[in-house]
Structure formats: C-alpha cells, structure tokens
Amino acid sequence: MNDDELQQRLRAIDPASDLTPADPDRVARLLEDTMNTDLTDTSAPGTPGTPEQESRNDGTRNRSPLTWLVAAAAVLIAGVGVFSLLGNDPERDDAPTAAPSASASVDPGSTAPSVTELGAPPPAAGRCMVPTAEALSTAQVAFSGTVQSVEAGVVTLVPDRFYTGEATELVEVRATPDELTALVGAVSFEEGRRYLVSATDGQVTVCGFSGPLSPNLEALYVEAFPG
C-alpha cells in the first residue's frame, strides 16, 4: 500500500464527510457573539489593551450588581487569608500549600497541557491590607487568564500572560468545597471571564490582590512586575 492508497482508505472513513455545512445565520451569530466578548486578551505581552478596551471592561460591565455584592461580602469573610499569609511566618506547617507544580510544567511535544496548581487560602478571620505593588511583588506566581471552568474543587484558568512564575498552559486552583466557596466568593471566579491572579506559597491571594481584570488591578500588576 502506498501513501496515496492509505490516504484514500482513510478518507473513506472520514467522520466529517457527511457533515452538513452550518446554518449561515448561526455562524453569523456565533461570530458576532465572539466579537462582542471582552477584548482585553488582544494584548501582546507588554501592551495590555488600549484605553478604549480597558474602559469597556472597567467596573460592572455586564455583571449584575449582585455579583459584586457577593464578592464584596466574601472579601470581608475570606479575604483575610491573605493577611495571615502575608503577616505570618510563611513556614508555618499547617498551611495547606500547593506549590506550583514544576514537574507538570512545559514539555514540548507532549499532548497534556502544562499546569500550575494553586491552592486556596484557608478561610480565617483577620483584616485585609491595602493592595500595594510592593506587597504584590512578593507573589511567586502572577498571571492574567480566563476562567475556563469552575467545577467541584477546581477552577481552571487559561493564562494569557505570566507576570511572574513559570509560564504554563493552564492554571488550576484546587481547594476543598469550603475553601473554594470562600475563594470563589472573594475572587468571584466566573467561567469565561478574565482575571488577574497572584499566589504566594502556592495559595491564591485574595484581599484585592487577585480579581477580575480591571485597569486599576492591571496597573498594580504592571507596577509590581515591571518588564
């Protein structure tokens, strides 16, 4: 059998051979929907968005006020994890650390995407410190990315830019349901939305250090991780 014959035989079993073309109206709608999504990912590293795009993404665009209410409430409850994280000895051994998995990092040619695994901060009582670039710059992982899925115990993000830390194709935030509730509340992860996320000692920072992408937060990240 030569290559042509093989190709012919394979084409005879092409599962898409009887696929009918998509309804043009549906395609048009799909493309329109696509173009109406946030444009913030257009940025090449170093040129995050145009001012116009940023203003479109500023604040409460397309989000119900409830989301923000919930997020704000949750920040009060859960955001405190960061305080204890930043304020306490990072070596304390009861911290449920989930260090960025260097082992699961970039492996060219492999079919499995590389993943950075992060944990959630333990829900604890405390106060938030004001987010500053200086404090943020101590994070070992900082990236912008879009939430691909929110599932039991795992939030999966597709990062588009790493400010610091080893770049991987995916980032998974793993947590117990309780922790996740706190974290999801604090950061309000929603599928398809873009976030700026940082992590210290393998734990996602809350308290305003991680959150939905906004010009202010982005400016903080850029300041904390110049270049």
Binding site: V27, T34, Q53
Partner: peptide
C-alpha cells in the same frame, strides 16, 4: 466607544474576513 475606535473597527473587519473561512 470602542466601536468608534478605528483600531477596533479595523480589528472587526480583519476578523470578519478571516473567521468565515475558518468555521
């Protein structure tokens, strides 16, 4: 506002030219 931006309009035009070929 963004749609009035020539860059954004140009971007849409590029995508509209490209995407139907990909679908």
């Amino acid at each position: 506002m963004a749609d009035d931006d020539p860059g954004a309009a140009e971007r849409r035009a590029r995508f509209e030219a490209l995407a139907p070929e990909l679908v």
